[in-house]
């Protein structure tokens, strides 16, 4: 049993430099407690996706360390990858396979013992029953997102990483997805880390926001404290302040 205050993710002086020139992530450190929901917020090229990819072991850091669920990543990936999962609208599920076939394959890859039973559970939770025998490529964007989410939850991960989970969805579908993610976190005690441009999503889902800019952490706190510090009503206004170089000092506050 892990202690509740154990870190799900520990990032220590992480640096990623591509081709010895482009600095995508510039010496960032943070610690994410188990059971929390944290957002990585930042504009395009801020380093969010690179950071998440290093946490998953898809990209090797130039320097620094990543520990996931207490183990070093990517060294301990064989012990870790079945305990985590990932969802992104930018990584497709095979289009020619039916939803059931795709979930069957991923269920087996993740070591789920009762794959048909787990698919039935997910179909009920994510309203997928009518889609199971349709080809994934024939689904709408919202339906595909639900299927991707089902793939991400197939192994009931302790750590769920999400890259813009509601990108290109209509408000109703996006809200539905957020509700399911919130429910999953509560029922499973899972840790969620999401990269997002959707400020409403971040305010609604997250305990904590890490704002990134040009590969560095520009701010790191709860949404309420960040709003207070920047004297703003919404995170969107904070986002614009950070993106346009208007830090909280410019908004009349002093850093705590």
């Amino acid at each position: 049993m892990h202690r509740q205050n154990d870190a799900a993710i520990e990032v220590d002086h992480l640096v990623k430099r591509y081709n010895k020139v482009a600095l995508a992530v510039d010496d960032i450190s943070f610690r994410i407690p188990r059971g929390s929901v944290t957002a990585l917020l930042g504009g395009n090229g801020a380093g969010k996706t690179t950071t998440i990819a290093m946490i998953m072991g898809l990209i090797l850091p130039t320097s620094g360390r990543v520990r996931v669920l207490g183990l070093p990543m990517p060294e301990a990936s064989a012990q870790l990858l079945h305990r985590m999962n990932f969802e992104s609208p930018y990584v497709d599920m095979p289009m020619r396979l039916t939803v059931r076939q795709n979930l069957s394959v991923f269920g087996r890859l993740y070591g789920v013992v009762d794959v048909p039973g787990r698919i039935a559970e997910l179909a009920a939770e994510l309203d997928l029953a009518d889609l199971l025998d349709r080809r994934t490529g024939s689904l709408s964007a919202g339906q595909k997102t639900r299927v991707s989410l089902a793939k991400a939850l197939i192994n009931e991960p302790e750590l769920l990483l999400l890259d813009e989970p509601t990108a290109s969805l209509d408000p109703d579908t996006a809200d539905w997805i957020r509700a399911r993610l919130a429910a999953y976190r509560v029922t499973r005690g899972a840790t969620l880390l999401l990269a997002s441009h959707n400020m409403l999503e971040v305010e609604r889902l997250c305990d904590r926001v890490i704002i990134m800019k040009l590969g560095r952490i520009a701010d790191d706190d709860t949404p309420a404290r960040i709003l207070a510090r920047y004297q703003r009503d919404t995170l969107e206004e904070v986002f614009l302040d950070v993106a346009r170089g208007r830090g909280f000092a410019a908004a009349g506050e002093v850093a705590p």
């Binding site: 998953m56 072991g57 898809l58 064989a78 990858l81 079945h82 999962n85 990932f86 992104s88 930018y90 990584v91 497709d92 599920m93 095979p94 289009m95 020619r96 991923f106 890859l109 993740y110 070591g111 793939k151």
Partner: peptide, 12 residues
Amino acid sequence: ARNLGNLMMSPL
């Protein structure tokens, strides 16, 4: 199929 990412972050 742009599925390589899914496979490479799975236990495979």
